Simulated assay, not measured.
Amino acid sequence: MILTGFAGLVAEACSMAIGEFVSGQQKAWRGSGDGQAENNKEGLPNPQQAAAASALAFLAGAVVPLLAASFISEYRVRIGAVVAAVSVALVVFGLLGAALGGAPVVRSSARVLVGGLLWL
């Protein structure tokens, strides 16, 4: 289980990074002339930086349930630990997103928590 979880974590992080990179490249080359100059002029992020940030953000979120599950052998306890760890992580990521974006903290955290738990 741990091996497949880790493989999925790496595969999805790579997928997110590649998607972000391709999206950034398309925006960069949409204009005429030098694509990176167009990106800088429009205030768009560097595609490599956006890809790295996307991969790291996914890794930070995906490692939480993997770590919670890896140290517990009892199946029912493992499920409870994963749900608890994911719930705490969702609230923390919601708080962080609200603080960085200047949004209402409680509302943003609740939205991230409920949206994330719906995916479980």
Rank of each mutant, 00 (worst) to 15 (best):
I2W: 14
L3G: 11
L3P: 06
F6W: 09
F6I: 07
A7P: 06
G8A: 06
L9F: 09
M16L: 15
M16W: 12
A17C: 09
I18P: 06
E20Y: 14
F21H: 05
V22D: 13
Q25M: 12
Q25L: 13
Q26P: 07
A28N: 05
W29T: 14
R30A: 15
S32F: 11
Q36R: 15
Q36G: 11
E38Y: 09
N39I: 09
N40L: 14
K41S: 10
E42T: 14
L44N: 14
Q48S: 12
A52G: 04
A53G: 07
F58C: 06
F58H: 06
L59T: 08
A62H: 05
A69G: 07
S70G: 13
I72N: 00
S73H: 04
Y75P: 15
R76Y: 15
R76F: 15
V77H: 11
I79A: 10
V82A: 06
V83N: 03
V83L: 14
L95Y: 09
L95G: 05
L96Y: 09
A99L: 08
A99H: 11
L100F: 10
G101I: 02
G102A: 00
G102T: 00
A103K: 06
P104G: 01
V106F: 11
S108I: 09
R111T: 12
L113G: 06
G115C: 05
G116P: 01
L117R: 07
L118T: 03
W119P: 04
L120G: 07
